[in-house]
């Protein structure tokens, strides 16, 4: 009996979260996110900001953590010295590296999340939305089998059992999809500035790109036609795209849920329109990376995108790329 035919809603709920799948999509997401996190952490040391960002004022840092009533746990345990800041940094780097290579993946994800949360508490203004998203994803990874493919954990399991694990719980990937949908949708709902609406002339992206704190260059030329109109169009598309993002969940339901007929379901199964939303998201992030100085934001967001793929879709894609390469090589 398929899970959709189970008698009660609770039984279907339990069976839905009990599904299993190939760990490939989770593993690819883990590696992509881990690389972005490592790059970001490495920048802290490269810019000589370890003590500045993780240390207290007494040690030459920017944080007043040692003086606050709600002192972070880290500085309850360790003295407010530069060495403590370096220990925290080293621990973050070590757990991020272990997470990326899939070594003690669950434990390293959990530890990295807690350590990163300490850094956020030490200097709250330095903690951005993307840091929180990464920690949300790490919390999910801490309960997943993401290390059982493309990772040391998988290699150890393969050595013990004779083959690489081919099945892990699928629910962590479902939660990641839900997390991305919630993020895009509620980001749209919270765009209350009138510049996001016709009453504000759909001027939001134009205004944001004039902000010297975030723009990568001087974009004053956008005031000239037809560029201003293009920014207005892009603002309107952004709003429609974010407000309608829950449609992605409905389209997943059509693609992978029960087969109950209907034109929309048939259309979705044939053309997979969910990729329009997901593809627009990738385009949007690439555009952000080119025009705004948002650090790892666009890259960390896109690092989570492999979770949108069912493992079989990912394998098919890889085969197509490989097949394409072979065909190209064989073409005289």
């Amino acid at each position: 009996m398929s899970l959709w035919e189970l008698p009660s809603r609770w039984d279907r709920w339990v069976a839905f979260w009990d599904q299993r799948e190939d760990p490939l999509a989770l593993a690819v997401t883990r590696v992509c996110l881990g690389v972005v996190i490592l790059f970001d952490f490495a920048q802290i040391a490269q810019l000589d900001l370890v003590v500045a960002l993780l240390g207290t004022q007494e040690a030459g840092g920017l944080s007043d953590a040692a003086l606050r009533a709600d002192r972070p746990l880290w500085y309850d345990v360790f003295p407010p010295t530069a060495a403590s800041a370096w220990i925290l940094y080293a621990a973050m780097m070590a757990t991020a590296t272990a997470f990326t290579v899939g070594f003690f993946t669950r434990t390293s994800a959990l530890l990295l999340m807690f350590l990163w949360a300490q850094q956020a508490q030490i200097l709250p203004p330095s903690d951005r939305g993307i840091d929180m998203l990464c920690r949300d994803l790490l919390c999910i990874f801490a309960c997943s089998g993401a290390g059982l493919a493309w990772g040391v954990d998988g290699a150890i399991a393969a050595r013990r059992q004779g083959s690489w694990p081919h099945s892990v719980p699928a629910w962590p990937r479902y939660l990641m999809i839900a997390q991305l949908v919630v993020m895009y949708w509620t980001a749209g709902l919270q765009k209350v500035g009138l510049e996001w609406t016709p009453m504000g002339d759909f001027a939001a992206l134009y205004v944001i790109m004039q902000d010297p704190a975030v723009s990568k260059a001087n974009f004053s030329w956008l005031a000239r036609p037809p560029f201003y109109t293009l920014t207005q169009l892009a603002t309107a598309v952004t709003m429609v795209w974010q407000w309608s993002y829950p449609a992605v969940l409905l389209l997943y339901w059509y693609d992978f849920g029960p087969d109950r007929g209907g034109r929309l379901r048939a259309f979705s199964r044939r053309w997979h329109p969910k990729w329009v939303w997901i593809g627009l998201g990738a385009f949007f992030h690439l555009q952000l990376a080119a025009t705004l100085e948002l650090g790892i934001f666009p890259w960390a967001m896109m690092a989570a995108y492999p979770a949108f793929f069912h493992p079989t879709e990912l394998r098919r894609l890889a085969e197509r790329v490989r097949g394409g390469r072979v065909a190209t090589a064989e073409t005289p």
Partner: peptide
Amino acid sequence: MDVSGNGQSWGLFAVPDRWPVRL
């Protein structure tokens, strides 16, 4: 949520700044 640093607050450019400050 506090100890894990998790959250769901995604106000990305919710109100574009018409009075930006240049450092």
